[in-house]
């Protein structure tokens, strides 16, 4: 029994159908608990006041915006190497989700930045990187929709994803070099000294878990949709031939 069995569309749908309700329920539970805990049961920061609470949306969304791209990179590689259709479709399915997380991160960042830095937008390295990431998502999705043949689209978008990843890393470095920025350093790290205080940290972890689960649930759901759409088109094509 190998993991590649799940690359079969039917098997994938059957398995995810079993898992999806649980993942969704857990995602909702974690998000409700994490956000309620974070919003109503944590103290206000002595400097930032209540605005600090936006962290419970901002940080998980930003993490998932990047992780979605990493997932697309991995599934694209799987498509190039092993040519499993489900893998290509999973990459396609993840792109709008990643783009949405990027928007959430940017908007919550603007809302947070306004009271903190006195401006909605600054050309801070992290903000700029996310803007560039958003452009990558847009281009990737546009290329998928522009090409008619599904296999050609999968091939081209996979290569774009690979090349884009290299340039995204370069951009990250370039942007850091270009402007040292207002943004605080990473909010989370394994080094306890650097961390935000424990009272903020635990609800944040729950929120992150919620976002991860939400992402997994959405990717499963959207991949299922993509598979079914492909199946519908394949059936229609067969109908027309007969």
């Amino acid at each position: 029994m190998s993991i590649w069995e799940y690359a079969n569309p039917v098997k994938f749908i059957r398995t995810t159908d079993l898992v999806l309700p649980w993942v969704s329920a857990l995602a909702v539970a974690a998000l409700v608990v994490g956000l309620v805990w974070g919003f109503f049961f944590t103290p206000e920061d002595y400097r930032q006041g209540s605005t600090v609470k936006i962290i419970y949306l901002h940080v998980p969304a930003a993490m998932m915006a990047i992780n979605a791209w990493v997932m697309m990179l991995v599934t694209s590689l799987v498509w190039i190497v092993r040519r499993h259709h489900v893998s290509a479709l999973a990459a396609r399915a993840a792109a709008p989700i990643g783009a949405t997380f990027t928007i959430i991160a940017l908007v919550t960042g603007a809302l947070w930045g306004q009271p903190m830095w006195g401006t909605w937008w600054a050309w801070d390295p992290r903000l700029t990187s996310f803007l560039i990431l958003f452009l990558f998502y847009l281009g990737y999705m546009a290329l998928w929709t522009a090409i008619e043949n599904d296999d050609t689209a999968a091939d081209l978008t996979s290569i774009l994803c690979l090349v884009g990843s290299v340039f995204a890393l370069l951009s990250r470095y370039a942007v850091n070099f270009w402007n040292q920025g207002l943004h605080q350093g990473a909010s989370l790290s394994l080094d306890a000294e650097e961390n935000v205080a424990d009272v903020f940290w635990y609800p944040l972890l729950v929120c992150i878990a919620g976002f991860v689960l939400l992402f997994v649930a959405l990717v499963f759901l959207r991949t299922q949709t993509e598979i079914r759409a492909r199946r519908a088109r394949a059936l229609l094509a067969r109908e027309r031939q007969a």
Binding site: I132, L135, G139, A142, L170, S171, V175, F177
Partner: peptide
Amino acid sequence: LLVLPLYVPTLI
């Protein structure tokens, strides 16, 4: 749209 983000590091 595809090329613009790829141009960013070179431009910077």
